[in-house]
Design a protein around this nucleic acid. Structure first.
Length: 398
RNA sequence: UGGCGAGUGGUGAAACGGUAUCACAGAGGCCUUUGGAGCCUUUGUUUCAGGUUCGAAUCCUGGCUCGCCAG
């Protein structure tokens, strides 16, 4: 209610405290335009703050693909929306082709990860490799002073130190998928929506007559669309839909699955095995093509090994330290102890009470927080669950 | 085949002779720039044929099916 759109005036929103300093002074800002409200308002804000704005839309996959006609995020209609928005705001619009980069960094990786029995996060990879690597590079080639995107997160600057923080709108906070950012990237990037709430962003969009003001949120994987991601993967790796056994931790067969690609650790629905209590996926065993399931309390993680870890300050810690771990977009933070290994690798012990520990899936990101600040994060490689129940098969963790 | 026991939604179970209940699975919705979780709603059941009874999942008889025990 307090967060409702009508409670704040446009004048109150257009202050430096909410949208950032009016420091443009004619400098060039490239704005990544997805076609949605968030990026549209981002472009608007940068213009208001005195920047020369160029709106850029990324073409990420082939327009011949029929998913383009339905997808609201990265398809052809989305590009039209982005173009129309730029027209209303009065800034130039560029469409650039990043199909090759996206195909390699996101789609190929996505398919490979599933084929390995892991659960990838393509949005994160797109941020990491496409938006904040290739797009940043393009922006710099154009002589831009910054790249602005519509992500909900905050970057704070203290001299040479640039830190990444949660957005003030906890409901929309996207810092989880931004944890890969380096100090150099944080110095160049701007997130003008980090101090606004979603209703406020829509309020701004409506006030300035942006055509996308009331556009629905995008969801689902952009290059897959509303159809099944499993079908998408299966088209490229037919073996991922090979049926196999569903077994419990003791190895007793409970049923048959229609391909490991349909499952992820922690999943409950869709197992199609009835029992006295709900069954959760504990493990995907690509070696035996078996799906290991068990009760919920057997699924919670105790120790996670991760790789591809980076820290937002660019450093690598020498000593173990404590932080909060988040293993899922919008997930609940869980206290942990991080023991760094070789650069990029660490062993993370979840130190909280078992009932509060999360269920973690290999392939997903683990992100470290200290209050609102993102320290860094990496990719979950292995998950140890509770110590195996005495007397039961030791097949559990691995 | 002889003896015993059991048959309740797709699955596992509950119901002094008195509204067939619960969990899991399935469906729909909320949530959500990944995949899961979670929350709300919802479809669907008494093995068959007779009988007793105001009233049968429940008691009786028979059939069928499935288990266990049978030198």
């Amino acid at each position: 209610m307090a967060i409702d759109s009508t409670s704040t005036t446009i004048e109150q929103l257009l202050t430096p405290e909410r949208i950032g300093p009016y420091d443009g002074a004619g400098r060039l800002a490239v704005v990544a335009m997805s076609g949605g409200v968030d990026s549209a308002v981002t472009a608007l804000i940068m213009r208001e703050r005195g920047y020369r704005v160029v709106g850029m839309n990324l073409r990420l996959f082939s327009p011949a693909d029929p998913v383009h006609s339905v997808n609201p995020c990265c398809g052809i209609p989305a590009m039209d929306d982005a173009r129309a928005t730029c027209q209303v705001i009065g800034v130039p619009f560029y469409a650039i082709n990043m199909e090759a980069e996206f195909g390699e960094a996101v789609i190929e990786r996505f398919v490979n990860e599933y084929a390995e029995g892991r659960t990838p996060n393509p949005c994160l990879e797109c941020n990491r490799h496409v938006k904040f690597t290739h797009l940043v590079h393009r922006a710099k080639l154009l002589g831009a002073d910054c790249l602005a995107t519509g992500h909900y997160a905050r970057i704070l600057h203290d001299g040479d130190r640039h830190s990444l923080h949660r957005a003030i709108d906890a409901r929309k906070d996207q810092s989880y998928v931004l944890h890969t950012l380096s100090p150099e990237q944080l110095a160049f990037i701007q997130f003008p929506l980090g101090n606004l709430t979603k209703p406020e962003v829509r309020q701004l969009a409506r006030h300035f007559g942006l055509p996308v003001a009331d556009k629905e949120e995008s969801q689902e994987i952009c290059f897959v669309g509303k159809s099944s991601y499993a079908d998408f993967v299966a088209k490229r790796r037919p073996d991922v839909t090979k049926p196999g056994q569903i077994v419990d931790e003791a190895g007793i067969a409970l049923g048959e699955h229609q391909g490991l690609v349909h499952h992820t650790v922690g999943q409950r629905r869709g197992i199609r095995v009835a029992g006295p209590s709900p069954l959760y996926v504990l493990q995907l065993d690509t070696g035996t093509n078996q799906l290991v399931v068990g009760p919920r309390d057997r699924a919670v993680a105790s120790v996670i090994t991760a790789d591809d870890i980076s820290f937002t300050d660019g450093s690598w810690p020498d000593l173990p330290f404590e932080a909060d771990a988040v293993v899922r977009y919008r997930g609940v933070p869980s206290p942990c102890r991080i023991v760094p290994g070789a650069r990029g690798e660490a062993v993370v012990s979840l130190t909280g009470d078992a009932s509060t520990r999360p269920i973690a899936s290999p392939g997903q990101a683990i992100v470290f927080y200290l209050q609102d600040e993102v320290l860094g994060g990496g990719t979950i490689r292995t998950v140890e669950r509770e110590a195996a129940t005495i007397g039961q098969s030791a097949k559990g963790a691995q």
